[in-house]
Design a protein around this nucleic acid. Structure first.
Lengths: 345, 345
DNA sequence: TTAGTTTATGCAATCGATAGCATTGAATAA
DNA sequence: TTATTCAATGCTATCGATTGCATAAACTAA
């Protein structure tokens, strides 16, 4: 069988240049023991011969693959894509590559993804835990094998890895406070699945805002769902069916918020005059709906960059036993027309 | 210095079980030469000792890394995220991992990404060419080194790799025909940068539809931009400033379309009654704006799956000289309220 | 019973780069 | 001039898994 064109190795360069493979290796790594003259010779041979170092061989020998793995639930939102974008941007500058895996929010799938990453001998794993994951044995194996582990967004304290997330509590609280300041007293809350820490924290933030302003929490106003496209529409219908009055909506998702807005507009409800609305995530389209949606920006790209930066610091302090780090990013309330009851546009 | 916990290798299993490393290797690969009895013994040792095969070593030896690389411009849209999602879904079932790189639409960055992927000895590279890339030498090196290459979405025939894309011409033509059928005669066209093949094809589709219906192409109605969020707004302003009349808009991007819609609504223009609008991409939010946006679905996830499937077939037919494949997916016109001038909702 | 097969496993080289430990020749010190 | 040091490079084992080519034992056929 005709072999595929053999790739050039340091041995080929060694043979061509008259030095040995070790010298070639050192020259190409800019080892200071190699004289400038030889280095230049070797570099020119390498260039001429179209040499490209074999990362597999290098990784095997050094024990570092220069690859990190990222596990996310699903590529269905700008959210995770943007985080990964941030991670990749920073990591590549440091010479790292990024392998991505989707868990589809499923435990088995997540487990398999982690296993694949560990076989690939990645230098670190960042993971946003799958919605359906209830036990963390698979994540513990990462720690057991001493692989730097960072949990982001969907994190759990009990896992005990480093964490990068936004302050969901604060984001939700500020959003709710803003609605109250705009005069809302019956604020419907379209919540996500409550076993997710992020969603739980948003609920706490919502409640804290109400409490701070002396408004009683009303169970009827909180509607839990998966927050996908149709959910906001559905939630509004429920409120109407049950005859529950509301003058504001805080939705834990922009999709949900905009769907609610659309439903209300169809019913002839004026926004923000009758019902003020705030979403969550600051998806790019929120500026394009009418009225533009107030929302909470999660600084996704920065979150990704924070993950990457944390990795870099973990790699550097390899030997030292390090404290578990928890980075909490500040969310930012973006006020647009959909929530401005008081002012007129 | 305290070594990090040594990982278990086939040699450790060999020592523990009394067989040799080769037997262990074969047993774990289900080589039929190994008896069932020993296989079971070895498997139980492997499980007990928490063995995890080292993909780096295996890849080095076999020459296949079981990794593919994907280069995209940027993770700023659902579009590329969704394609990558599709690729990953299919590849992982076949035991492959996916490394992703962003080119930031920049030639140098793209070149570096390709170089990194080749160092990583990926088994294949899929690339959506950067907007600023005008020469393709870096992409040619992929072919020169016999690495399976697939161009997707942003492709160029002159590169000569396999291609996966949607029929932009058809998508644009159908969108435009639909507007004409709805009674539009002066259809503004918000176009993307015309050196991109995809955008060029959309322009051809737009023109073909006009020609088919005997409508003259009017240069004033075609407004070229990068199609980002604000561009639709800007384009409408230009039309008004120039005093150019129009009764329909075909925008080569949903963002542009929705921004245009918003601008028009602010001006008191009724949609679709006075101006019918069709976008492109079927971003998830298009159903949430009012009126819901008609658009062209690009089947991004399927595109990703097609890329992956094509890779698998390329890997299988390794030896054979294969024809260059060109897979063209059918776009789908999604008709919603924003373009229905004739019917009433 | 002996040669010819199978069946099951071992031996040793290999993939390509790296790194600890020589070695060589030249430069410096005594 | 001889001993010492240093600079530059070579030698060789190694990372962990794979695989072509033995080899040994068991089995079949004659």
């Amino acid at each position: 069988m005709p072999k595929t064109t053999k790739r050039v190795t340091i041995h080929d360069i060694a043979a061509a240049s008259g030095f040995t493979a070790s010298t070639v290796s050192r020259a190409l790594q800019n080892d200071e023991r190699i004289s400038d003259a030889t280095r230049r010779i070797i570099e020119s041979f390498a260039a001429k011969m179209n040499y490209r170092s074999n990362a597999l061989a290098s990784s095997l020998r050094t024990g570092k693959s220069k690859i990190i793995g990222v596990v996310i639930p699903l590529f269905n939102r700008t959210f995770f894509a943007s985080i990964i974008g941030g991670i990749e941007t920073v990591m590549k500058q440091a010479g790292y590559s990024v392998i991505i895996c989707q868990s589809n929010d499923d435990y088995e799938s997540e487990k398999e993804a982690i296993s694949a990453l560990m076989r690939a001998r990645v230098d670190g794993i960042a993971i946003s835990v799958a919605a359906q994951t209830k036990k963390f044995d698979h994540i513990q194996t990462i720690k057991n094998e001493q692989i730097p582990l960072i949990l982001f967004d969907r994190t759990y304290d009990e896992i005990g890895g480093h964490q990068v997330m936004i302050d969901d509590f604060k984001g939700a609280k500020e959003a709710t406070l803003h609605l109250i300041e705009q005069g809302c007293r019956k604020i419907a809350y379209f919540a996500g699945l409550q076993h997710l820490t992020t969603q739980k924290n948003r609920t706490l933030g919502y409640k804290a805002a109400l409490a701070e302003k002396g408004i009683a929490f009303d169970d009827n106003l909180m509607i839990i769902s998966h927050l996908k496209e149709g959910s906001g529409d559905h939630a509004v219908n429920i409120l109407y069916e049950k005859g529950i009055e509301f003058d504001g909506i805080f939705a834990a998702s922009d999709y949900s918020a905009v769907a609610a807005m659309k439903n209300l507009q169809k019913r002839g409800v004026e926004i923000p005059k009758s019902v003020a609305i705030v979403g969550f995530a600051d998806e790019p389209f929120t500026v394009l709906v009418t009225p533009a949606l107030s929302t909470v920006n999660q600084h996704t790209n920065q979150m990704g960059q924070a993950v990457a930066t944390l990795f870099m610091s973990l790699f550097e302090n390899k030997g030292h036993p390090k404290l578990v780090q928890k980075m909490i990013l500040e969310p930012e309330l973006i006020i647009r027309a959909s929530s401005l009851k008081k002012e007129i546009f």
